[in-house]
Design a protein around this nucleic acid. Structure first.
Length: 234
DNA sequence: GCGACAG
DNA sequence: ATCTTGTCGC
């Protein structure tokens, strides 16, 4: 279930680290999670060049057709500075606001960023999973921690992402000959199932359809927000 | 001390 | 994340 207060924004880096250390014990790294979820949500955030405005989006897809069944957005300001490892605090409030506006309850969250593959084993996907109580997985475009070797060139090939003597994720090739993505468990999922779900969501492109639809929606929303609330000119 | 560093 | 020109390929 959800954890009260887990979405609060820390007042300092030290406090943020403490929050992660505390919440990491609430993560379910076993799952295994839904084998055939009917709906999956994608979450993403777009930032204005000025850095003081952002738009968050959540899209819910039908896993069978990959059609968008529901979607919601929220506009706001980054809640925390960008600090590698504390990235979740920056986007969490906006993403949760968007999730609250959904008319449906997705069976799985696919996050744009890492989950367990994190310095303290509590990346954005873990945080969102613990706060919402929903199964979640992290899909990063670039590595944050860990050592790995490139997986074979064919789609579906993978290699282990290892850090500090443990496997923290999987380097997965979602398209033949294209740069792989970094999959890790967020909450209530097994790594094996997480990788399977990501492959099911990438029939054509490198990134999951969930991430692609959410990315487009938050970008469009940001443009619209900037047009509606232009900066004061004088 | 130095380099690395999700989005 | 965002900026940013051309270029290769289906």
């Amino acid at each position: 279930m959800s954890v009260p207060g887990a979405a609060a924004t820390p007042a300092s880096v030290a406090e943020a680290v403490a929050v992660q250390e505390e919440l990491r014990s609430r993560v379910d790294l076993v799952g295994p999670g839904p084998a055939e979820p009917a709906t999956v949500a994608g979450l993403d955030v777009a930032y204005a060049e000025s850095g003081d405005l952002l738009a968050a989006a959540v899209t819910v897809l039908d896993t069978r057709t990959l059609a968008v069944l529901d979607q919601a957005v929220s506009v706001g300001r980054p809640a925390f500075g960008y600090v590698p490892g504390l990235f979740a605090f920056r986007e969490l409030p906006a993403l949760l606001a968007a999730l609250d506006r959904l008319n449906t309850r997705p069976e799985l969250l696919v996050c744009d960023g890492h989950g367990f593959a994190h310095p303290r084993r509590f990346g954005l996907a873990c945080h969102l999973g613990v706060v919402t109580g929903l199964p979640a997985i992290g899909v990063g475009k670039t590595p944050l921690v860990g050592d790995w070797v490139p997986p074979a060139v064919e789609r579906g090939a993978w290699s282990a992402l290892r850090d500090g003597g443990e496997v923290v994720g999987r380097v997965l090739r979602t398209r033949a000959g294209v740069k792989p993505v970094f999959v890790s468990v967020g909450h209530r999922m097994s790594l094996e199932n997480a990788a399977a779900q990501v492959l099911a969501l990438t029939p054509r492109y490198r990134l999951p359809e969930t991430t692609r639809t959410a990315d487009r929606l938050c970008r469009d929303t940001l443009i619209a927000a900037q047009a509606t609330a232009p900066p004061a000119t004088g």
